[in-house]
Nucleic acid binder design. Sequence first.
RNA 1: GGCCUGGUAGCCAAGUGGUAAGGCAGGGGUCUGCAAAACCCCUAUACGCGGGUUCGAUUCCCACCCAGGCCU
Length: 317
Amino acid sequence: MNTNRPKLIVILGPTASGKSTLAIQLAKKFNGYILSADSRQVYRGMDIGTAKVTGRKTRVAGFPAIVSQGVHHFLIDIKNPDQTWTLADFQKAVKRITTRLRKHPSFSKKIPFLVGGTGLYISSIVENWDLPKGAPDLARRKRLEKRTLDSLVKELKRKDPASAALLDLQNKRRVVRALEYVLSTGHSFLKNQQKRRPEFDILQLGLAVPDAELTRAMTRRVRSMIRLGLVREAKRLPKKYGWDSPAMSGIGYTEIRSYLKGTLSLDDAAQQIVTHTRQYAKRQMTWFKRDTSIQWFQRTGEAKTIVQKFFSTQKTQ
RNA sequence: GGCCUGGUAGCCAAGUGGUAAGGCAGGGGUCUGCAAAACCCCUAUACGCGGGUUCGAUUCCCACCCAGGCCU
């Protein structure tokens, strides 16, 4: 029935699982381009620490892109580290790019591959979340953040009891966001949280890597990051953008910061990066687990087979 | 050789004459505009060894072992 919906292939998995490499292979084989679903790789200059793909920079239909091994990657290097980039920006960008490229002479036949580890971002596309309208009220948010959690919770319970009942009231960041929304729009926060029918005909592939192997890959990766100049990168960026810019809170940078301050040896910093990366991978998996439509695979070959089937089946769903 | 300080769970680290905080690590989880973020829950019969004093010692005393520092 929905054969008219454009296809979208999602490739997800924990960090360091080898998504990027695999995605390039698949994109080559099936004539695709890549949309990065990674909240950190959007930032320019954060190359080593985010294990970004490298390649020639270009533009397609006005969108910046990186061409790596002949495959176009979008949503990488589009913001400076001190700029904000949010879920809504991501969602909008994905829709805009896919829509535009569908009409582009040399991209109209290409299949978008949404590749990354930011589960929130992926879900917003796969489940087609209807995000609350209106831009965040940053000034108000700032004011709210100064108040105690307790007073925020009380006010939220008064103004929007329905949302308060469902929110994690111990998480200040969430309470602030909800209250910010309620106060600036006058509407209930949760009432606007809806899912719609996906705009795409979607196949979700999950790259499963055994724990021990993943840890080994992370260790290797951190070593190579340091060899490539992670310290230099972590020294250079804050000079320009400051340590508290949104982008610098990521794994790899905070630990190197400790090293630069002298609190940690470089070896210990590296060790910590691995530990924190593992914890992050755990959180990613916790997120992915709740989506039962993800098809997990371990070998590239399996992925190719699944994709092939996806293309040949005249779907009913 | 002498003196000093210390030896508490995998690591760091409080503390007490009545069997011991916390942090990290570990395990599980939450998630609709900061998500590599933020938050929640769960975890260990850990007080160097041996004596002594005491109703009772991880806490006091003695000896020993170990580590670090100082001295000759």
